[in-house]
Design a binder for these strands. Structure first.
Length: 582
RNA sequence: GCGCCCAUAGCUCAGCUGGAUAGAGCAACGGCCUUCUAAGCCGUAGGUCAUACGUUCGAAUCGUAUUGGGCGCACCA
């Protein structure tokens, strides 16, 4: 519809161009759905834009444009309004045609190919496998999964990927934390390090180690802690303390160290995978950081940077000169102790991503990582790739509110609300919807009470209720013996104000999908669905659907059937269910 | 101190990349169920778009400054 109108405009502008009235035709002609129905169905500001170069008043130019458009079966009426907007009033037939389109395409309605099959790598969540996902990760998960759905809907070939940080010191700390809890199971008396992972889940994993390996790796705590330097709370250095325990544990355990680590990583990563799967968040790839080291890619990437002169040595460490590419300061890639930093493997990871031949690489990060963008882009440029191909989307934190009060959370003490707890408390549908209801770069307050409420005003249920109501109408129709025959419905009978409003809303769906997808803004779709539901509920209250006049009944049923289809399609992109009864 | 993000109704937020009288949802107030689910609908009230300049036909939107909040500035990840 919009495309056809745009075409009419272009033809008109080309004629004016030939006459020399205007100098050129803009590449983009804005044609908007109007907010106010007195402004017609679509409006364009083209005359305002071109007025200056045409050297005439916007209103005069608008008249010339309209004159060249002439008659079309699409348009009932055009008018010039305000400073020079051109408003289009569509004919009834062109407005109701959307119902036929929707019913014909069914679950495929809204799909398009603006993405032209371009391959996109979308990396999101990628939380360290040191514990369960918490509510902050939940927002990234819901956002990423929805962006992926939207991009697929408009024709991109998207791969979802989770980068697993299964290498490095954090993994050692995890292993040792489990090992110490394991020893405690056997009654070993020890002091748990300040810097260890304090959460209860570590104790559960320790029990799994017992279940799997029995007493095989039991060691004497006194032997383990003998001559170990003091921990922070005892006046020492917590980092040195836990490093010493790591070293000692490796020596005492030998191959057992790997065994404990395996149980830990499998348990935690398995938990994360289950959690995300239950949340409706699917991944095509789980990319292991350790694999970059095992394949030698981390090392060879650093060597490449060294050969090309991007790396220098200072204070015994290797520094990457990221300032050459606009970073604030240079960054260490290999530490004085010979161990590479997280950044080093991240460079290799991004190089590997580019080598896989994607047209677009997108990372979704927590907003606290924004300072990291410059150095990653620098490394891409230094390795002769185009940093513009990497897009980084930032997701702000979510604060939880319960009973009007902020829920305090701290990762350190292990007192955080997990994603699983949130899902169990409010349900997957409400969680998915609430997470994407806010623009991702906005801080968001997640009201647990509102998300849970099934009796109060809750946007998720409001939309689902619209769907359930439609389903109920069709059940009633069946009971009354009405044979639904939507393909033959006479849509010209839809002339009530609430019907026109609903038709207009349905006409918006395609552009909402496209806009949400291209701008990575799922909230646009969430808002749209609520507005669509509002239009339906108004219609429901204004007009009975099952009336004595069969032709009118068929027309109205066709309309709400189309509405139901769009609700289902939209909710499904958000990962939210559409229950048939509530 | 430097950098990034943010500031819109009492609360939570939209505002389609500069357009028409700034919109929703909660909360408040007043109506609507013998009729397809009242988890709904209709109406009323609520605003100096943080502040001040600037850019132009036109600014919540763009620029500069100020104020107030969040985050980041490791040989951690």
């Amino acid at each position: 519809m919009k495309e056809q109108l745009q075409q009419l405009l272009i033809v008109s502008l080309e004629a004016l161009l030939a006459e020399g009235v205007i100098a050129e035709i803009p590449t983009q002609i804005r044609l908007d759905h109007t907010k106010d129905k007195t402004h017609g169905d679509y409006a364009t500001n083209i005359a305002l834009i071109l007025a200056k170069q045409a050297k005439c008043a916007p209103k005069v130019l608008a008249e010339k444009i309209i004159a060249k458009i002439g008659d079309s079966s699409l348009v009932n009426k055009t008018e010039i309004a305000g400073p020079g907007f051109i408003n289009f009033f569509l004919s009834e037939a062109s407005n109701s045609a959307v119902v036929t389109d929707i019913l014909a395409s069914a679950e495929d309605y809204g799909l398009s190919n603006v993405g032209e099959g371009k391959r996109v790598l979308l990396e999101f969540v990628s939380a360290n496998p040191t514990g369960p996902l918490h509510v902050g990760h939940g927002r990234s998960a819901a956002y990423g999964a929805t962006v992926a759905n939207l991009m697929r809907a408009v024709g991109f070939a998207v791969d979802n990927e989770y980068y697993v940080n299964d290498a490095g010191r954090q993994m050692d700390i995890l292993t040792v934390s489990i090992f110490l809890r394991y020893l405690e199971v056997f009654g070993e008396d020890l002091r748990f390090p300040d810097n260890g992972y304090q959460g209860e889940y570590i104790k559960d994993i320790a029990k799994s180690v017992v279940a799997e390996h029995g007493e095989r790796w039991r060691k004497n705590a006194d032997e383990l802690f003998e001559d170990i330097c003091k921990d922070e709370a005892e006046g020492g250095d917590k980092e040195a303390h836990i490093d010493a325990i790591i070293k000692r544990s490796k020596r005492l355990l030998g191959e057992g160290y790997q065994a404990v680590f395996r149980v830990g990583i499998n348990s935690i990563l398995g938990g994360i995978k289950d959690d995300l799967a239950e949340f409706g968040v699917d991944y095509q790839q789980w990319f292991s950081e350790q694999s970059l080291i095992d394949d030698g890619l981390a090392k060879s990437t650093t060597e490449t940077l060294q050969e090309t002169g991007h790396i220098y040595e200072k204070d015994g460490a290797l520094w990457f000169k990221t300032t050459d590419y606009g970073d604030e300061k240079d960054r260490v890639v290999v530490r004085e102790n010979g161990i590479h930093t997280y950044f080093a493997s991240d460079i290799a990871y991004h190089l590997e991503k580019f080598d896989r031949g994607y047209d677009k690489v997108i990372n979704i990060w927590g907003a606290d990582h924004h300072g990291y963008i410059a150095r990653v882009k620098a490394s891409i440029a230094a390795l002769n790739h185009d940093p513009e191909k990497l897009e980084i989307l930032l997701v702000q934190f979510a604060n939880l509110y319960r009973g009007g009060k902020k829920v305090q959370m701290s990762t350190r003490s292990g007192s955080f609300v997990t994603l699983e707890e949130l899902r169990n408390e409010v349900g997957n549908d409400a969680a998915r919807f609430f997470y994407v209801l806010r623009k991702s770069e906005q801080h968001m307050d997640f009201d647990l009470d509102l998300a849970k409420s099934k009796t109060n005003e809750n946007p998720v249920f409001y939309i689902q209720y619209a769907h359930a109501r439609i389903c109920s109408v069709f059940r009633q129709a069946g009971e009354k013996g009405v044979t639904v025959n939507s393909s033959d419905a006479d849509l010209s009978l839809l002339i009530e104000g609430s019907e026109k409003a609903l038709l207009k809303e349905l006409n918006r769906y395609k552009s909402v999908i496209e806009s949400s997808a291209l701008q990575y803004e799922p909230h646009q779709l969430a808002y749209y669905l609520r507005e669509l539901a509002t239009n339906f509920h108004s219609y429901y209250n204004a007009c009975p659907f099952l009336v004595d006049d069969d032709a009118l009944t068929q027309a109205r049923l066709a309309l709400i059937k189309a509405c139901k289809q769009v609700l289902v399609n939209g909710l499904s992109l958000l990962g939210v269910g559409a229950p048939e009864s509530m």
